[in-house]
Simulated scan of single mutants.
Amino acid sequence: MQDLDFSTLLYRYFFFGWLFRDASRGNMFERSAAWRFNQGQARWLLTYMRRWLGCGLLLYGLGSFVELMLNAPGLSALFYVPSALSVPVNAVIGAAWLGLKALPGPL
């Protein structure tokens, strides 16, 4: 197996775009095949949701600790902002998962 750079591994740990194929290109058969492939890969989206949820909760906890225990509200923003950004990322992942599970394939 090919060794990957740490930055590539980190990207793949948090972002799932590399798992899917483009279902908007090609003829009808190629689009349908890509859609079926993407539906099979949708099982990994829940794993990505858990990762983002865990990181969001960890960052929120660190922000709370820094704000309350160290009395540094300005520094706590470095943890609160990424924590808050994990919420819309999870919403997008959830919408993608629901779409791949519920919507019909391309015509």
Results as ranks from 00 to 15, higher is better:
Gln2Leu: 06
Gln2Ile: 11
Gln2Met: 07
Gln2Trp: 02
Asp3Ser: 10
Leu4Thr: 14
Asp5Thr: 12
Asp5Asn: 08
Phe6Arg: 10
Ser7Leu: 05
Thr8Pro: 05
Leu10Met: 09
Leu10Trp: 09
Tyr13Thr: 15
Tyr13Lys: 05
Tyr13Leu: 15
Tyr13Arg: 13
Phe14Ser: 12
Phe14Ile: 15
Phe15Pro: 10
Phe15Glu: 12
Phe15Asp: 13
Phe15Val: 14
Phe16Ala: 14
Gly17Met: 02
Gly17Cys: 05
Trp18Gln: 12
Trp18His: 15
Leu19His: 13
Phe20Gln: 12
Phe20Gly: 12
Arg21Pro: 08
Arg21Thr: 10
Asp22Lys: 04
Ser24Glu: 11
Gly26Glu: 04
Gly26Ile: 06
Asn27Asp: 15
Met28Arg: 13
Glu30Ile: 06
Ser32Lys: 14
Ala33Asn: 02
Ala33Lys: 06
Ala34Thr: 07
Arg36Ser: 07
Arg36Met: 04
Asn38Val: 04
Asn38Met: 00
Gly40Ser: 02
Gly40His: 03
Gln41Tyr: 00
Gln41Gly: 01
Arg43Gln: 05
Trp44Glu: 13
Trp44Thr: 12
Leu45Ser: 04
Arg50Phe: 06
Arg50Met: 09
Arg50Lys: 11
Arg51Gln: 07
Arg51Gly: 03
Arg51Phe: 00
Trp52Leu: 07
Trp52Ile: 11
Leu53Thr: 10
Leu53Ile: 05
Leu53Pro: 06
Gly54Thr: 12
Cys55Lys: 03
Cys55Asp: 03
Cys55Thr: 15
Gly56Val: 02
Gly56Trp: 00
Leu57Ile: 15
Leu57Arg: 04
Leu57Ser: 08
Leu58Glu: 04
Tyr60Ser: 14
Tyr60Glu: 09
Gly61Lys: 06
Gly61Val: 07
Leu62Glu: 02
Phe65Gly: 11
Val66Pro: 06
Glu67Arg: 13
Glu67Gln: 14
Glu67Val: 05
Leu68Trp: 06
Leu68Ile: 13
Leu68Lys: 11
Leu68Cys: 02
Met69Gln: 12
Leu70Phe: 00
Asn71Cys: 06
Pro73Met: 08
Pro73Gly: 10
Leu75Gln: 11
Ala77Asn: 09
Leu78His: 01
Leu78Asp: 03
Leu78Lys: 02
Phe79Ala: 13
Tyr80Asn: 09
Val81Trp: 01
Val81Gln: 08
Ser83Phe: 00
Ser83Leu: 03
Ala84Arg: 04
Leu85His: 03
Leu85Thr: 09
Ser86Arg: 05
Ser86Leu: 04
Ser86His: 05
Pro88Leu: 01
Val89Asp: 00
Val89Ala: 02
Val89Ile: 11
Asn90His: 01
Val92Leu: 07
Ile93His: 00
Ile93Tyr: 00
Ala95Phe: 01
Ala96Arg: 11
Leu98Lys: 04
Gly99Lys: 09
Leu100Ser: 04
Leu100Phe: 04
Lys101Ala: 08
Ala102Asn: 10
Ala102Glu: 07
Leu103Cys: 10
Leu103Ser: 10
Leu103Ala: 14
Gly105His: 06
Pro106Met: 07
Pro106Gly: 08
Leu107Ser: 14
Leu107Tyr: 03
Leu107Glu: 13
Leu107Gly: 15
